[in-house]
């Protein structure tokens, strides 16, 4: 069941588009904002609200990489793996994060605190290497700095 709030937020998008289907990406993002991810059940609820076949909605969901169809940790760490950051040693930062968190990319820490994901260029190449934790961008990374950043996310 979609919560009152989720439904209200989704319905608030309706007037922005001439079709219900056009709201589907917003809808999935709204649900994800509240729950961290989009479960099969939530997907079904959205498909019913938007009058869109479930398979089609899932086809859309699985196309886009920022829609999570699996649970994630409380915080998602996106490490840029594109070219400018790579030149600036993003793989060292990645390695450091893997060791610190004890997870491989795509995995969540045992305590459910972090999910570590690679991401394409975050558009902050002048501050490379960069990562994003939830909504915050962090640039000019180096191992010591990363440790300090992680501390802020409980």
């Amino acid at each position: 069941m979609l919560s009152e709030e989720e439904r209200r937020e989704i319905e608030a998008e309706f007037p922005h588009y001439p079709t219900r289907q056009a709201v589907c990406i917003d809808a999935m993002k709204i649900v994800q904002k509240h729950r961290g991810w989009v479960s099969d059940e939530a997907l079904k609820d959205i498909s019913e609200l938007l009058g869109m076949p479930l398979a089609e909605l899932d086809g859309v969901a699985t196309f886009y990489n920022l829609i999570f169809r699996q649970p994630v940790g409380r915080h998602v760490i996106y490490v840029c793996d594109s070219v400018s950051c790579w030149i600036m040693h993003s793989d060292r930062q990645f390695r450091h994060l893997r060791e610190r968190l004890g997870t491989a990319p795509g995995e969540t820490t045992a305590d459910g605190r972090f999910t570590l994901l690679p991401i394409v260029c975050l558009g902050a190449c002048d501050r490379a290497p960069v990562m994003m934790v939830d909504d915050d961008l962090h640039g000019l990374l180096e191992p010591g700095k990363i440790d300090g950043i992680l501390e802020k996310y409980r």
């Binding site: 076949p53 479930l54 398979a55 086809g59 699985t62």
Partner: peptide
């Protein structure tokens, strides 16, 4: 038909 689709990329 609604229940067959393309998934992923």
């Amino acid at each position: 038909g609604g229940d067959l689709h393309a998934f992923s990329i």
